[in-house]
């Protein structure tokens, strides 16, 4: 059974918030005693998704949850925005596809960096991306 040992929510409304997201995710990952590689992976994934929420979703929030599954610790991050949503999910989850000016690696790259990845989007209503990294 998975229990949530700690939870918090952070805003993603400007570029400075993306930096703060990286900082707070680092703090939590450190507290959960993630290895340096796992810390780097979850911070990088968070940075990509926070930027997506800001650039494409016109701002949103990041919900953070420290998890405990038996003796296994984990960190779950949920990025939510009320932006235009994603019309074509298959395309959005293709390496190199972008509707902005980026590389199109953010979403797919973030998926590769974590253990669990879930995305839900309704066109016109917004997008929610949940990632979990287990220690």
């Amino acid at each position: 059974m998975i229990t949530i040992t700690r939870a918090d929510t952070r805003p993603i409304q400007n570029q400075g918030d993306i930096v703060l997201v990286r900082k707070v995710v680092r703090d939590w990952a450190l507290e959960l005693q993630f290895s340096i590689v796992d810390q780097t992976k979850i911070i990088t994934a968070a940075s990509e998704l926070a930027r997506n929420a800001f650039e494409y979703g016109k701002g949103g929030t990041m919900k953070m949850e420290a998890l405990l599954n038996g003796i296994r610790k984990g960190l779950r991050l949920t990025f939510e925005d009320q932006g235009p949503g994603i019309e074509n999910m298959e395309l959005a989850l293709t390496d190199g596809y972008t509707t902005g000016g980026g590389l199109g690696m953010g979403l797919t790259g973030a998926r590769r960096l974590v253990n669990e990845f879930d995305i839900k989007s309704t066109p016109g209503q917004g997008t929610t991306v949940t990632i979990t990294k287990w220690k």
């Binding site: 590689v37 810390q39 992976k41 797919t108 790259g109």
Partner: peptide, 14 residues
């Protein structure tokens, strides 16, 4: 470049 950064960067797809 830190080793962890290199690992993450390549896995990210860059």
């Amino acid at each position: 470049m830190q080793p962890a950064v290199a690992i993450t960067l390549v896995e990210l797809g860059l």
